[in-house]
């Protein structure tokens, strides 16, 4: 049975600490966590402003954010590729096929999720939280921090959700990263490559890591949502 042999080999790779395999895992984590660290503060501010401010065009922006939620990641990759390619408007930055390009791609993919989740968390917050902060003399920033603190579990769920999306995303990473070994090869692109080469063991091993991560993130997300619900 090829499946059983492959799985055995995959487990061996995982437990003997195959350096190539763990390097791929490390690159994946570095890029995805880096992207989230950069985009989360901006997305939270954007989500909060969309939820609390009234300005012309707000509804359209909300719809756009929600539409971007379902934006195919290969299209994000395509647009970013055209921007970053040598003849593109940002070609002089020479970012194509670098980890930076992958970080930018993942930021773009995570942003709508983070914004939309923060938006709905803040909208779901009790209005009296914001009002109490205001009547106690808080300025805009302190008021925002108080509200975000009350909905922190919703915001945490947003971050976990964003992580789950970018860590397993293959289209954009492949296009703007280029799947260069030791550089821009992350778990999803490696799995895609190994599979086409007919070498399943590494693919399965990485698949196990990815599944474990995705499951942990889902557990973390359910925990955050459960903890948030309990507080009500």
């Amino acid at each position: 049975m090829q499946l059983i042999e492959t799985t055995q080999e995959a487990l061996r790779l995982l437990f003997v600490g195959d350096s190539e395999l763990w390097q791929i895992v490390w690159i994946s984590l570095k890029i995805s966590i880096g992207a989230l660290l950069l985009v989360t503060p901006l997305a939270i501010v954007a989500g909060y402003l969309l939820a609390t401010q009234r300005f012309p065009g707000r509804r359209i922006l909300v719809v756009v954010v929600q539409a971007l939620f379902a934006f195919p990641t290969v299209v994000v990759g395509l647009l970013l590729y055209m921007l970053l390619s040598r003849h593109g408007p940002l070609g002089s930055l020479q970012l194509l096929f670098t980890q930076t390009a992958m970080v930018i791609g993942q930021m773009l993919i995570a942003a709508p999720i983070l914004i939309a989740f923060t938006l709905s968390a803040v909208q779901g917050a009790d209005a009296r939280v914001r009002e109490t902060a205001i009547v106690l003399g808080a300025g805009r920033v302190r008021t925002a921090l108080s509200v975000l603190r009350e909905v922190r579990f919703g915001v945490m769920a947003a971050v976990f959700n964003g992580f789950g999306r970018v860590i397993s995303e293959v289209g954009c990473a492949l296009m703007v990263g280029g799947n260069i070994a030791g550089m821009t090869r992350n778990m999803p692109t490696a799995i895609a490559l190994e599979t086409t080469k007919g070498e399943f063991a590494q693919g399965v091993a990485l698949g196990i890591v990815l599944m474990t991560l995705a499951l942990s993130v889902n557990f973390a997300m359910s925990w955050a949502q459960g903890a948030g619900d309990q507080r009500r």
Partner: peptide, 25 residues
């Protein structure tokens, strides 16, 4: 000063609630 019909307390601590306005001002 204004107090809501059903006042809401920040989910910090009683003391942090009372110092909130003082810090804010």
């Amino acid at each position: 000063g204004f107090v809501h019909h059903h006042p809401i307390l920040f989910s910090t601590s009683v003391v942090a609630n009372i110092t909130f306005g003082l810090h804010a001002t």
